[in-house]
Design a protein around this nucleic acid. Structure first.
Lengths: 170, 170
DNA sequence: CACAATACGGAAGAGGGATTCCGCTTGTCA
DNA sequence: TGACAAGCGGAATCCCTCTTCCGTATTGTG
């Protein structure tokens, strides 16, 4: 059933319909509601899952020896996952305002901490502008998310320019 | 009445409600429908208006002697107008995929042509990377739009990095 | 095997908002 | 002044999707 929900939300974002999810899962809507009190709770569980994966990925990327490459990988990975999941992309496109609601707050904090580590390495190596902070990241992910959502097939081109803007000044 | 619709769509984006628009205009919903067949048509008329303004603005900016400053102004102006109008921001955040629907297509073409002129000057002056094309612009506007929509108060910081990415390589 | 207890399906209910429709008002002309 | 037309307001209607609820099916137990 989670599988069905993932597929539906990935395809339609928040517009995914409970009936559709139930159908895909081969169960009745009532059954869906026995596991999740509301549609929002279901969607939220999936976003939480995505965040967890993202956190795990960033942790992994900390092992990448090249600090610049690590940052590149983070953004690329993000775009790829966004491309596969509209709900996830929407979540990222939306929550850049710095108002981390309830349960997501903890994950966002964790993500920011990890990003800070990534940036610290990069700043030390002089491969990014020295004033780049972890708090600069959410808007960047947000912009990328909406580009992907808008269906720009060549988002790598966009990402390329975006990343260029993170390089040291001069 | 257009005034009321502008205010409602600016504040709530596409979620603006017809009843609310009518109330703001001090008329009944029926009256709104006598001027516009559907809510969508009304929203569309306002977006068209915004595009018209944008086109006029870019024309104006072509007179700016500093080619780089001209580009900066374009983006800034865009962010400011997006900040004041959610529906407009959403429209821009959405239509970067290069599928310019019906009537908007003409305006988008015009905008792209103007952007190309802006870029031509800038490339000639060597103030932007030489491979920068007009078609690179929509995604940039799209990203900016979603950052503004997400409520990032300090979008200038984001814009600053974005613009940095347009500078010549090296 | 009979009886609970639990899980299920999906039709009905509820809520919200766009759109329609009709009686009323205002303005015009003979 | 009276008949008619055009414009209006806003209650009623329609539609869509989430959520609830209940009769039925399944599983577990003595």
């Amino acid at each position: 059933m989670l599988e069905a929900a993932r597929a539906a939300f990935a395809e339609h974002g928040a517009e995914a319909q409970m009936d559709d999810i139930a159908r895909r899962a081969g169960v009745g809507v009532g059954t869906v509601y026995r596991h999740f009190p509301t549609k929002e709770a279901l969607a939220d569980a999936l976003v939480e899952e995505r965040f967890e994966h993202k956190i795990a990925y960033v942790r992994e990327v900390l092992d990448e020896p090249d600090p610049w490459r690590a940052i590149e990988l983070c953004f690329e990975h993000c775009a790829i996952t966004q491309e596969q999941d509209r709900a996830w992309a929407t979540a990222l496109a939306t929550m850049a305002g710095g108002v981390p609601a309830g349960p997501r707050a903890h994950q966002i904090d964790e993500l920011l901490t990890l990003q800070e580590q990534l940036l610290e390495r990069a700043r030390a190596a002089g491969v990014v502008r020295s004033d780049l902070a972890a708090t600069d990241m959410p808007p960047l992910y947000c912009g990328l998310a909406s580009v992907v959502l808008a269906g720009v097939a060549d988002w790598r081109r966009y990402l390329d320019m975006l990343l260029d803007g993170l390089r040291p000044r001069g």
